[in-house]
């Protein structure tokens, strides 16, 4: 009948360590049906219960794009031939990261009534938020098409950067949320800290301006390199822009390697932390 018929549920005091990310992937595969349901539920709630539905998911980034475009036309003298595309892609990529991180932070605490009634691996909540935000990003990305036509941009082989950046952003957001979702169960302050941190890094990341404005000679080279290392989102946003404009990715290979490695390490360590702390954390909700 169901998928879990005759399953044996075995719970003991043992905790996974290095195998944690592998275990998470197994759980996600075993519970893929449920994951699909959760993502579908969130999309349904988001799009069905409002008059504009899908319109909302593009209206907000579009409104922000127009605002920043006007601001920049007045304030800045930089010449960016694709400014609307630069701004729109920056905002979309940033909100993918910010929503994955902040939704992930609160998802364990917000689902307390469900968690206290039935057991299934709790990382499903985190990944359902990541999955939902991924679909949301892809759907919002469709508005880029008229802009691309307007600027006569055809996808080049640079488009390969898009899926890579997408996966890395999701790993970064989920990896950080592994930590904050556990901490959130013990101190409700965490979500506010995350909100403030995201707001600050919104301005410190090249979201509504191109990366060159930071690294392009305005600050000493060693600072520019340090900036790229501590802010992985700068790299990922720039990758997504290059994917569409076809411009070569102006980031040193060594920086790319470091950024990817940091993101993977955050995800890996987060997975270990989450798997070890999750069962204690659910007692606090």
């Amino acid at each position: 009948m169901g998928v879990s018929e005759n399953k044996v549920l075995r719970r003991d005091g043992k905790l996974p360590f290095f195998s944690a990310p592998v275990k998470i992937m197994q759980n996600l595969y075993n519970y893929r049906q449920l994951l699909k349901h959760f993502i579908g539920r969130d999309l349904k709630v988001r799009y069905h219960n409002s008059i504009l539905g899908y319109g909302w998911s593009v209206l907000e980034p579009l409104a922000l794009t127009v605002t920043f475009y006007i601001l920049f036309a007045i304030l800045s003298d930089s010449e960016d031939p694709y400014r609307p595309i630069t701004i729109l892609l920056g905002i979309l990529a940033w909100s993918l990261f910010a929503k994955t991180f902040s939704n992930g932070t609160t998802c364990i605490q917000r689902n307390s009534s469900l968690i206290q009634r039935v057991y299934f691996p709790r990382e499903i909540f985190l990944f359902s938020k990541s999955g939902y935000n991924m679909f949301h990003f892809i759907l919002s990305l469709l508005v880029i098409i008229p802009l691309l036509i307007n600027y006569d941009l055809m996808p080049t082989q640079q488009i390969i950067l898009l899926p890579i950046a997408l996966i890395m952003i999701l790993m970064l957001g989920t990896g950080l949320a592994f930590f904050t979702s556990i901490l959130q169960t013990k101190a409700r302050d965490v979500e506010h800290i995350v909100t403030i941190g995201l707001r600050i890094s919104f301005y410190l990341s090249p979201v509504f301006y191109p990366l060159e404005m930071i690294t392009g000679g305005r600050i000493p080279e060693q600072y520019a390199e340090a900036y790229l290392i501590v802010n992985p989102m700068a790299t990922y946003i720039t990758m997504i822009r290059s994917a569409f404009t076809g411009a070569p990715l102006d980031i040193p290979t060594i920086n790319l390697v470091i950024t990817f490695a940091t993101t993977i390490a955050i995800f890996w360590m987060g997975a270990i932390y989450f798997m070890r702390k999750e069962r204690k954390a659910v007692k606090f909700i």
């Binding site: 169901g2 075995r10 003991d12 689902n111 659910v282």
Partner: peptide, 25 residues
């Protein structure tokens, strides 16, 4: 299976449902 034991072992065979109070989340 909602709380994992800090010591010892729990083994349950079969589909399990808990009904407590109202609603199911």
């Amino acid at each position: 299976g909602i709380y994992a034991p800090d010591e010892g072992l729990v083994e349950v065979e079969g589909r399990i449902t808990l009904l407590a109070g109202i609603g199911t989340g």
